[in-house]
Design a protein around this nucleic acid. Sequence first.
DNA 1: GTCTATATCCAGATAGAC
DNA 2: GTCTATCTGGATATAGAC
Lengths: 202, 202
Amino acid sequence: MARIKTKEIERETTVEKVEKILTGAMQEFLAHGYAGTSMDRVAARAGVSKATVYSHFHDKEGLFRALIEQSAHKKFEDLFDKSLLEGEPKVVLRYLITTALDGMLSDQEHQAFVRILIGESGRFPELAKAWIHDMMTPPLKIICEYLDSHPELNIPDSEATVRMMIGSMVHFMMTQELLHGKEIIPMETERLVECLMYHILK
Amino acid sequence: MARIKTKEIERETTVEKVEKILTGAMQEFLAHGYAGTSMDRVAARAGVSKATVYSHFHDKEGLFRALIEQSAHKKFEDLFDKSLLEGEPKVVLRYLITTALDGMLSDQEHQAFVRILIGESGRFPELAKAWIHDMMTPPLKIICEYLDSHPELNIPDSEATVRMMIGSMVHFMMTQELLHGKEIIPMETERLVECLMYHILK
DNA sequence: GTCTATATCCAGATAGAC
DNA sequence: GTCTATCTGGATATAGAC
């Protein structure tokens, strides 16, 4: 009994260390990029030795891949609540657009994630692809189905329309926040919301 | 006379070396990012010594800043020809959108530039701002004026509309090319063109 | 599993001859 | 202005004790 308990305690602290490494490494990668992050700082931030980091993740690339992949899967859950896709388009669409935009604009970690994903998409193409698959495809499909279920909207190509919608929103976040364009080309979020509502609902 | 000519020849080769350093360094930065680029390879690619690179550019950061700034100023010229902004909207807008989209989708160097600009926008915020100013503001203004000069289009907020337009186009390029989404969520360019035409021209 | 200590290499940057 | 040679620090990664 005692041995088992000891084992369990040991495994717990190990898990905790791995957890600390993962979260700390994520912070480092988001702040400094892939090449700009050192394994020394990753270890220091997690409060463990470098050798421990290497014993859990084969090398720097392995650690990076694990982090990005995990994050790509996780994030797409909480972007929007698909149960809200019921009701008349005027209300539903406005709510959808507002929620998604505000979510992106206020989430600095998500912004840093997008930054590194794009920045490293040359070196790590598969990670970019996985993100596209996990983040873009689900909302695309769901919103398409919603638009198609309302033929009175008269939308000839719902998929293209949803891409236009998402694209203008993501691009807005990028120019305003990621690229620090808030002061250079300022614009209230509501104007983009109204614009999309106007052009989509005719 | 002879001395002057010698001097001129010497200055010519110097300029040539600087040119070689600039173009070579650009290739390196575009391929490997800021932190991933080494001054050794920059020097080697230019066929000069490292000391020569440092004598012309104070340090790595200075070289990078010079390159990105120069490129931000230069590129915005050839994106579109504003003389083409005369005629009826159906023709002008379609041509504008098609040209810009095809230009972005086929220019791999521009794509790599966007990648590094976003990737390093955390470390070099002023460069990102300069690019926003040089690349976004001019077309934004010009297209806005065009739309406003055609009140029959019934566009309530031309600036927001142009942002929607440009945003969806840039985002399309990013997902398809930068993030290698061509095979994962394929879509013909024409569909986005038609979609924009439909929603903007009502 | 985790540590300290270390091997090995390569980075940015400069000194000094020519 | 340009080179070779070098300084110095910090990077990835591992060996070996506990």
